[in-house]
């Protein structure tokens, strides 16, 4: 009798485990408001909400994993997680290594923030996070690029005077500029990103299709727009 109960319990457990596929989502956890670590040490932010919602719609069990920005693509390829959802703009260079989902944010702006409005943006020193579309752009403007492994480090370089300005996604700089009275916008907003997408292994088109379908559905029923407004700010462009 005892064995019977135990076997039944084990079967029930296994059935429970098998019913939902577990997907590991890799993020940086250092790029608010897209993704950051909250006071409880959990991943939070726009992409946490979006990812959880997409997983719910696709009936997938999702685990969040944080990984350094610089090694985020190699670790996807070697299978440490199954998808990247980390404020990653879709670019042709990245698309050579990974496959992107449809974009879940519309084309958006990148901006300069500095301690004064007339910071020298083309001849001075500009800080940016390494391996980003922004760091690429700074090189093209002729400014001296100071690269850092995280957004936080590039911002700190500007605040300490090491760099004249910091260049990053506008949505990321908005909270900084609005909350810190010494930091202000410098120069024009620049349309750099063609949109942010999730990244998948090229050998994993089925998973990508599931998330694509979820993103399209969220675009269609307006939940994605509401989420963008809530987390990325009222002024952030929607679909």
């Amino acid at each position: 009798m005892k064995t019977l109960v135990l076997t039944a319990a084990a079967c029930a457990l296994m059935a429970g485990a098998a019913s939902a596929e577990t997907i590991r989502l890799g993020t940086e956890g250092a790029y608010p408001p897209y993704n950051y670590i909250d006071d409880n040490g959990q991943v939070a932010g726009f992409e946490r909400m979006l990812g959880d919602e997409l997983c719910k719609r696709a009936e997938l069990e999702c685990e969040w994993v944080t990984n350094d920005w610089d090694s985020i693509i190699p670790n996807l390829l070697s299978g440490n997680y199954d998808a990247i959802i980390a404020g990653m703009s879709i670019t042709p260079e990245r698309a050579e290594k990974v496959d992107f989902s449809v974009n879940y944010t519309p084309p958006s702006y990148s901006s300069y923030a500095a301690m004064s409005e007339d910071a020298d943006l083309t001849g001075g020193i500009v800080a940016a996070q390494s391996s980003t579309i922004q760091s690429q752009y700074v090189v093209d403007t002729g400014a001296t690029l100071l690269e850092f492994p995280s957004f936080e480090d590039s911002l700190a370089a500007m605040l300490s005077g090491e760099a004249d300005a910091v260049f990053a996604d506008k949505d990321t700089l908005v909270p900084v500029v609005e909350e810190d009275p010494t930091v202000m916008w410098a120069g024009e907003d620049i349309a750099l990103s063609v949109g942010i997408g999730m990244a998948f292994r090229k050998s994993d088109p089925d998973l990508r299709a599931k998330f694509d379908a979820g993103i399209e559905a969220m675009k269609a029923d307006g939940t994605l727009n509401a989420m963008i407004k809530e987390y990325l700010g009222e002024d952030s462009p929607g679909f």
């Binding site: 596929e21 577990t22 069990e61 685990e63 994993v65 070697s78 299978g79 050998s203």
Partner: peptide, 24 residues
Amino acid sequence: RQGNDFIVCAAAKMPLNNAPESVH
């Protein structure tokens, strides 16, 4: 090996994909 990707079957993942985060 598929291009840059390293793919093994789900049962060979170490630890398994559905293992709790603590196991990872």
